[in-house]
Design a binder for these strands. Structure first.
Lengths: 247, 247
DNA sequence: TTGATAAGTGACTTATAGACACAAAAAGGA
DNA sequence: TCCTTTTTGTGTCTATAAGTCACTTATCAA
């Protein structure tokens, strides 16, 4: 290689690197199982932070992804085999230091799915697993993924105050006590049964499936499902303690 | 240059181009002046959409910007000469078609500033101006910037329901009737004077500056300022009509 | 049949927003 | 000086929704 050519090459390469930070998409997929909130992590197979656990994200594929959502859904399908019913952009983190390789930008999403929807697929692979919020505290994560999950967790908490978005982490049909328990875990406080039911009835976002379920002794609970059309992200009214700060 | 090296170089270069969409930062800077909400636009000096008006954004400068916020603030300082007191990430838009040149990602911010803070500086340059929401409808914008401003506008409307963030579009000292008028414009509906004042008092986010101002006949209004520390993004309680949908 | 258990409701209390009349503080003119 | 006009700011009643908690309903198991 001649010196001149190398010079040109480096200039060219540097210019490219100058204009374009690395761009990745990192979905934070939550589910609810065994009375715990869990997040999907994968074990990195490549540099940097090889072998460490992190979010199931990756680079935008300019050839096949038409949008950033496509990238998020593609990465989630690769790991879970299915498309989650809820996906919403969380925040974009970008700075010079979060990735050793270069200035790096990651567009993050919050996603929710029923545990049973992908439990089978995940059980077949060794490099992906559900990690509970409790386990998460002990597990060092790649890059700034721990911080990102913290943000997603906090956003989900806000959703629990004002919406029934968390219901997407439950199966298609679920009971109100199940949903209330999930909200209580997200909010870290007990909720009044009556207030909770009242808010959800008023919002008219759920419909009676006609079925009931009795887990073990006690009156059977009505199974509800999301009403088609009107999104579960519709605002509910205030819940006690809602007078806090935004994300 | 040897074939092998060129091969390696191209692979490297292609991979780089393959992995990296264009990354820009686009701040939507609002202000309030003459009873109108206005947004800062600049006239593009380069391809594509040359001569058209658009958001005062640009590429991330990997050498000088440590974070995405740095990029947003740098671009705003270039056009206004000052640093806005409020800057919050809005949303990231990325797809294959929004920029003719390439797959493109833009990280957007909502920013607010008092009109007087930068009116002088803007008046000196020909390629930047404040455009009212009304004027905006007639003006074709570069890229998808019209859609982005629409999203920012809608987010600001939500803020007006739950917070006093819009106060950052006012001077340091302002009266409650002024703030209420701004909120009414953002929400597109009249507000009850008593309810509005009560919510703001309860939030304890403003403090009496001790001064008063009488614009024209009538009782002089108390001038308030933001309390240091506690951000104005703290949630207020519900306002009628709040049972709508999130952004 | 009876007790245990969990789902779901009735009804009262409390808190906050809506509505609107009224008081307070200035300007200006006769 | 005093009265009118104008705008800011408050008092207070009403309406609505959330908090509380006892009570009813529906099922299982002994």
């Amino acid at each position: 290689m001649q010196t001149n050519d190398e010079q040109t090459f480096l200039e060219h390469y540097d210019k490219q690197a100058y204009d374009a930070p690395l761009v990745t998409v990192d979905p934070v997929l939550f589910t609810y199982h065994a009375e715990q909130l869990k997040v999907l992590l994968v074990q990195r197979s490549s540099h940097p932070d090889r072998q460490m656990w992190g979010l199931p994200g990756g680079f935008v594929d300019l050839q096949h992804d038409a949008t950033l959502e496509d990238t998020a859904l593609r990465k989630l399908r690769e790991k879970t085999g299915v498309t989650p019913p809820y996906l919403e952009q969380l925040h974009t983190f970008g700075n010079a230091t979060r990735d050793k390789r270069s200035w790096s930008v990651t567009v993050c999403y919050t996603a929710l799915i029923a545990h049973q929807e992908c439990a089978a697929h995940i059980a077949t692979v060794m490099d992906a697993r559900w990690v509970s919020m409790q386990q998460l505290e002990m597990l060092p994560l790649a890059f700034d993924h721990g911080m990102i999950i913290g943000h997603a967790r906090e956003r989900l908490r806000q959703k629990a105050l004002y919406s029934i978005v968390p219901a997407y982490a439950l199966p298609e049909k679920f009971t109100l006590p199940e949903l209330q328990q999930l909200h209580e875990i997200l909010l870290g406080m007990p909720l009044q049964k009556k207030s909770f039911r009242r808010r959800i009835e008023q919002a008219e976002l759920l419909e009676d499936s006609g079925e009931k379920r009795a887990d073990s002794g006690g009156r059977p609970a009505t199974l509800y499902r999301m009403k088609a059309g009107s999104g579960a992200h519709t605002f509910l009214r205030n819940l006690s303690g809602a007078t806090e700060t935004e994300e």
